[in-house]
């Protein structure tokens, strides 16, 4: 039982970071039918903004994070939308897929070339002190990561349903044409979505890097897992992405411990196929009328 709780809590902490990355997928999909194959690299890069701020500009950890936030919003939000997505969207999903794959390579190679090919230690936001819960050893960091991710998601949900701008964004996501008629500034709403995605990527990056370390090719694994989490949970719902992320985090640990270490990453994949076959909209997703 202790073992099980240990695996569950660790899985939830890791899963909450997958969830942050997965939400990005669903946000961009909802707002602009963009499948971002560089999402993993979006989570990898901000950690290097922070490190560059600390090592090259001599900033403290806090100011470096602020700098990274600005850089993320500008590069991963604004520039990404204006330069790559806007011109490509009218041509359907495929050119976007190819362009974001290439973008992922570009980001990865730039970090390798201009920063380092080596993994970098990253300062921890929270103490690595451990406490014992029901016999399981849990670090303060794990709990903080879980709480921060969940409250970020809660805030986002509140913003989307509780504020005027948020509701306009949702209207845009559901039906851009109608939203436009109703006087919503659709373009601006889509831009907000991209900015939120960039900020979430930064958050995920800062939370995961102390545990996962910062390395140029971290996005490869992370992006795939976030993608699977988004599909399993429901590609068009934020709460689906959270459920998917947490579920994958936990299942991965349980599979490794109780099924097979060699096939641990097969279990989420099999789950993905089963879900698509019996519930294509994902666990918590809504059936989509729109044809792609």
């Amino acid at each position: 039982m202790t073992e099980f709780i240990q695996l569950l809590i660790s899985g939830l902490a890791t899963g909450s970071i997958y969830a942050l990355a997965a939400i990005g997928f669903t946000l961009l999909w909802q707002a602009s039918q963009t499948i971002n194959f560089a999402q993993g690299e979006f989570v990898m890069l901000p950690a290097f903004f922070v490190l560059a701020g600390m090592h090259f500009l001599g900033l403290g950890f806090g100011p470096a994070i602020l700098l990274a936030l600005v850089a993320s919003l500008l590069i991963l939000g604004l520039t990404f939308k204006r330069v790559i997505i806007d011109p490509l969207l009218p041509h359907g999903v495929l050119p976007v897929v190819i362009a974001t794959i290439a973008l992922g390579i570009l980001m990865k190679e730039s970090v390798k070339q201009f920063y380092s090919a080596e993994a970098q230690p990253f300062p921890a936001l929270f103490s690595e002190r451990t406490i014992t819960v029901l016999g399981a050893v849990v670090s303060v960091q794990d709990i903080a990561v879980l709480l921060i991710s969940l409250s970020a998601v809660g805030l986002l949900q509140f913003f989307l349903t509780g504020t005027k701008t948020g509701r306009c964004m949702q209207a845009t996501a559901q039906n851009p044409a109608v939203a436009e008629i109703l006087g919503v500034n659709v373009k601006r709403m889509i831009l907000y979505t991209f900015l939120i995605n960039a900020a979430l990527a930064l958050l995920a990056s800062v939370l995961i890097s102390p545990i996962y370390l910062a390395k140029f090719n971290n996005g490869e694994t992370l992006g795939l897992i976030a993608f699977i989490a988004a599909i399993v949970g429901g590609f068009n719902q934020i709460r689906g992405a959270i459920a998917g992320g947490l579920l994958i985090g936990v299942i991965d640990n349980l599979a490794a411990a109780y099924v097979s270490a060699q096939y641990r990453s097969a279990i989420p994949l099999i789950l993905l196929i089963i879900i698509i076959l019996i519930r294509p909209q994902g666990l918590l997703g809504k059936a989509e009328g729109r044809t792609v």
């Binding site: 695996l7 660790s10 995961i208 090719n217 694994t221 991965d252 640990n253 490794a256």
Partner: peptide, 11 residues
């Protein structure tokens, strides 16, 4: 590229 080693360590 594995992120979570909790299960490995439990075993």
């Amino acid at each position: 590229g594995q992120a979570d080693f909790a299960a490995d360590v439990v075993k």
